[in-house]
Design a protein around this nucleic acid. Sequence first.
DNA 1: TCAACATTTAGCTTTTAAGCTAATTGAAGG
DNA 2: CCTTCAATTAGCTTAAAAGCTAAATGTTGA
Lengths: 105, 105
Amino acid sequence: MSSVSERPSDTPKTVSELEQADAVFSALAHSVRRQILLSVHYRGCARAGEIARRFDCSWPTTSRHLSALVESGLLSVERVGRERIYRANDRLLVELFERWLGYLR
Amino acid sequence: MSSVSERPSDTPKTVSELEQADAVFSALAHSVRRQILLSVHYRGCARAGEIARRFDCSWPTTSRHLSALVESGLLSVERVGRERIYRANDRLLVELFERWLGYLR
DNA sequence: TCAACATTTAGCTTTTAAGCTAATTGAAGG
DNA sequence: CCTTCAATTAGCTTAAAAGCTAAATGTTGA
């Protein structure tokens, strides 16, 4: 992980960090995705079908929200047989929000 | 501020709280808006022109980003003569992120 | 092997967001 | 007054996101 010296520790560091922040904030911009994220977090893990059943939109639409969350790094998937199990990567969001709380003080 | 009883303190409470979260997360979804927000925060306050000059996009585009930030509650404006002075409402974002850190634990 | 199942991908339409230039508003100062 | 200046609003185009249904993929179990 490259990091430029002479820079205060409370500002964004690497390009990839910026790109990831971008992906994460974009993923969080949709209410259904935020609900999915919290719901997966609270359960520990969830199959795609469980999640899809819980929302008003069609399964393909939810499926796309899931991909967006995975691409942003907020969720990860594991394939188990014909099912896919989603898990929340809490660390990523915790670190991002703590970094921002740092900026704001 | 109305709040329903019998509800765990670490879940969203009111409709307006949900709506505001929605507005805030949408506002944060654009990289330029995040930069504006942090830059106003660091300076304490800034005139529209100072902000507009600092970004690649046209002044009207920046102006719209500013409105989005104001509508979300993340910035507030004060009119002084023919200038408008923007200030960051840090509390809002701090509270939102702390609430989320609460959800994630 | 084949039907049933879980889920995603394709392909499409509609909505929303982002950007620009030109026009407008409204205050300041000669 | 009238010009200049700060900034927004109008009006438009393009691009991106969100939603749907139908088709495809890949797995399981009879």
